[in-house]
Design a protein around this nucleic acid. Structure first.
Lengths: 173, 173
DNA sequence: CGCAATTCAATTGTGCACAACTGAAGAGTA
DNA sequence: TACTCTTCAGTTGTGCACAATTGAATTGCG
């Protein structure tokens, strides 16, 4: 007897779909398929999976692509500024930028003005890569199957969600 | 002269907000703040930051919590089934489950029926942890500031997005 | 001025995530 | 039955992410 995992985990009948509103038991609230955070996590990884081969042709990982996006807009940024833009700390950015530098896309140098900070600047090669990246957004956009309105709504929704979560985290600490 | 990173990166005036609809230049499409994938990525990390201290009290990381959610629903699952539920492969799950086993929350054993697969089963301690986890969903829900309707809409939107991206990734490979 | 507090980038340690691969076990077929 | 194909979990290597710490540079305050 072979019981497919899909049947067991997706179409399962053990937990009848109770009305969404009203006081759902804590039993219901702990269901995996009720967790928005998991849906978010899954969507993020699905995006990553789609981007991975496309970015691979450019020699970039997804977080490296995000850093390049910021640099294509600003040409030169300190590690601190990049961290604010990408919501990443130096522990993540330092090795990432080191790899971008090894790939010849950026150069890093300590600012003369403030010797504590490090400026990250695009090289000619890094600037040139922008041209090859231009096709990416449309390719990915098409893959979502979303129209402009849906996408905007989702984007705004995510923005508010992130702000609310940030606020809650800050209040807690 | 001190120019705050926020001014430079968030409120920047270098790129006037063009109408969302219509043919935006590729220049516009590469803007970091236009990337839904980045908004998703950021929201996911914001969730993680909120969960981290709460889960820390239970001795769990966020992915470990997701695995426990699946197990609290099913008591016993193979690594394969868990991977389908969480969208993770054995390369991620094997060490994660090893840590859960070291923490005494689960036991792993080769199935007698099929010696290839490994069953993951909750221990008494693992089952008991569920009671302490019950408060989490409501705490987190409250932090989002979203009402039931918004949350459901977001959840559904993410579901469709993930399915579409999965489809596109599959067609490409 | 001089010293404490802060800022900034880097490092270390832990854990997640995926690709590529390994090896064992089962399934299907000539 | 014997052979191949597939399935499953685990390992290795690379890279992201964060906490905690370090050390240098700057700022602020007495």
């Amino acid at each position: 007897m072979e019981r497919s995992a899909d049947t067991a985990l997706e179409g399962g009948t053990a937990h009848p779909a109770r009305s969404v509103r009203g006081a759902a038991g804590s039993e219901e609230l702990l269901r995996l398929d009720r967790q928005v955070c998991f849906a978010l996590h899954a969507a993020s990884r699905a995006f990553d999976a789609l981007y991975r081969p496309l970015l691979g042709e450019l020699g970039l990982t997804y977080p490296q692509y995000l850093a390049m996006l910021a640099l294509w807009e600003h040409d030169v940024l300190t590690v601190k500024e990049l961290g604010l833009a990408l919501r990443l700390d130096s522990g993540t950015l330092s090795p990432l930028l080191k790899r971008l530098e090894a790939a010849g896309l950026v150069v890093r140098e300590r600012s003369r003005a403030d010797e504590r900070s490090v400026s990250v600047r695009l090289t000619t090669s890094g600037t040139a890569l922008k041209r090859r990246a231009r096709v990416l957004p449309e390719t990915v956009l098409a893959s979502t199957g979303f129209d402009e309105g849906e996408l905007t709504a989702l984007h705004q929704s995510l923005g508010r969600l992130t702000a609310a979560l940030d606020g809650a985290t800050a209040r807690r600490s």
